[in-house]
């Protein structure tokens, strides 16, 4: 638990730096440090599947973000209504903290899950599917319907990006200036 707390504090510090720093590239690097700490947290909690996925997706996102943000400096939007903004933030934080307190009180304590469905999966996965990776057996056999939905989400996202970023039939920038 001790090393877990240190990693969580490190991740919070990384997220705060990513919000507060002015340079976009430094913000991306801070987000990457926070994500790599999350990967180590998954390893400590004995979830190697999630650790592999986390580190790989983190690196892909870092590459895409660096390609997108390098040599660009977006201006910060600051409006004059600082009193209303601060008040709204404080009210939302209070509501969020209260609802979180009410909801998280009912959850089981950390490390003591309610083993109703998961106990069945743990007992039956090797016998039913003959797959030694139980995570794979759950997501692709017992709960394959969920995975089908997830695959549909990714497929729709890729289709949307490809349709938005197409270059056939798109007007050139010079052509737009003439109009």
């Amino acid at each position: 638990m001790f090393e877990l707390n240190i990693l969580l504090i490190f991740m919070i510090i990384g997220a705060l730096i990513a919000i507060e720093v002015k340079d976009l590239l430094s913000a991306v690097v801070a987000v990457g440090a926070s994500g790599l700490a999350l990967c180590i947290v998954f390893l400590i909690l004995k979830a190697p599947d999630l650790a592999i996925t986390q580190i790989v997706v983190e690196i892909l996102c870092l590459i895409i973000l660096i390609r997108a943000t390098i040599k660009k400096d977006l201006p910060f939007s600051t409006s004059g209504r600082w009193f209303f903004n601060t008040l709204a933030t404080l009210v939302f934080l209070a509501i969020f903290a209260y609802l979180g307190y009410v909801a998280l009180k009912e959850l089981p304590s950390f490390g003591n899950p309610i083993m109703k469905v998961s106990q069945f999966y743990l007992n039956e996965a090797l016998k039913e599917t003959k797959a030694t990776n139980i995570v794979s057996a759950i997501i692709l056999n017992f709960r394959a319907y969920d995975t089908l939905g997830e695959a549909t989400v990714l497929f729709t996202a890729v289709m949307g990006v490809m349709a938005l970023m197409r270059w056939k039939g798109r007007k050139d920038i010079a052509e737009k200036d003439n109009e």
Binding site: D49, I52, T53, V57, A131, N133, A137
Partner: peptide, 12 residues
């Protein structure tokens, strides 16, 4: 189905 990983991680 044998070791940690799977379609998503390997695909990335």
């Amino acid at each position: 189905h044998i070791s940690p990983g799977g379609g998503f991680a390997g695909g990335v």
